[in-house]
Simulated assay, not measured.
Amino acid sequence: MSDRRRGASAGALRTMGVLVRRDARVALGGVDALASVLPFVAAGVVLGGLVFGPDPAALRAAAPGLVWLLVLTAAVPLARLVAAAERDEDSWDLLRGLVPPGVLFVAKAAVLWIALAVTWVTARALAVLLLDGPVTVAGAAAAVLGLVGVAASTTVFGALLAASARGAGLLAALVLPAGLPALLAGTQADLAADPLPWLVLLVAYDLVVGAAAWAVFPFLLEE
């Protein structure tokens, strides 16, 4: 690798690190971020326990699906994190002109993955405590994999929202269907006797959604 290429790679990593750190601070303190999402998740687990009734077997079976449903629902407000800092500073146009699309996409998707992972862990811990939900290695692996695809698609929809205020009304209609494979496969990986096929499905989901998001994201920056 030439010195010029190494320098470009190092610069891209530094830029990505700056964006991730800044957006992570926004995620921890923003109105549309984790500060408001986590209480919603806690309320969702409690209400889910009431809806499914007192039967321990029913609660245990429903817990993994409820966790994923809450995570996907939380992805709607979290999509605003894609341009939250830039919206506050009125610098979205400047940022997309200075930072390469690939670097910007990976940085934004990484922050969303972290926010979604915190949401999943919170929902899962509450489901274990309140609903006697299962704790499985396959369920954790499904979360790591499934949230990659959810974060990638949500990053695209968040960029669409940043490019056009009219996208706000369609955000839920876009984010929730895009996450259905993660919801289905993530739930079944927790409950199935053989979770491997469901984990493979999540890998395929990540590859397809990741490739599509990578291809579409630069065009959204040009709007």
Results as ranks from 00 to 15, higher is better:
P56E: 06
A61C: 07
L50W: 14
T15M: 15
L69N: 03
V31K: 12
R21P: 09
L19H: 01
L34E: 04
M16C: 14
R22A: 14
R21C: 07
A57K: 05
G53R: 00
A57G: 01
L59S: 07
T15D: 06
V20H: 03
S36Q: 12
L50G: 07
M16T: 12
R22Y: 13
P39E: 10
F40W: 13
R21K: 11
D55V: 01
R21L: 15
A58D: 06
V26N: 06
F40V: 08
T15C: 11
G44T: 04
L34S: 02
A33M: 10
F52N: 00
W68H: 04
T15K: 09
V18Y: 13
A33F: 13
F52E: 01
G29S: 11
A58K: 09
V71C: 01
V37F: 13
A27N: 06
R60S: 09
L69A: 14
V51N: 02
A42E: 11
V45F: 01
A24K: 06
G53S: 02
A24C: 11
A61D: 09
A43N: 05
V26G: 07
A62M: 00
L59T: 01
L50Q: 08
L70I: 01
L50H: 08
A35S: 13
G29E: 07
A61S: 14
P54E: 15
G49C: 08
V31Y: 15
T15R: 15
L70P: 00
P56H: 10
L50C: 07
L69D: 05
P56R: 05
A24V: 10
W68Q: 02
A57T: 03
D55E: 07
L19P: 00
L50Y: 11
V20G: 04
A61Y: 10
L47W: 10
A63P: 03
P64G: 01
P39F: 13
V20K: 04
S36H: 12
A35R: 15
V31P: 11
L69P: 02
G30I: 08
A33P: 11
V31I: 14
V41M: 11
R22W: 12
R14N: 05
L47C: 05
T15P: 00
A58M: 07
W68E: 00
D32W: 13
P39T: 10
S36E: 12
P54M: 14
R60C: 04
R60N: 06
V51H: 00
L38C: 09
V45Y: 00
D23Y: 03
A33K: 08
V51L: 13
P54T: 14
P64D: 03
A24S: 15
D55N: 09
G17N: 00
L47T: 04
V18C: 07
L38G: 07
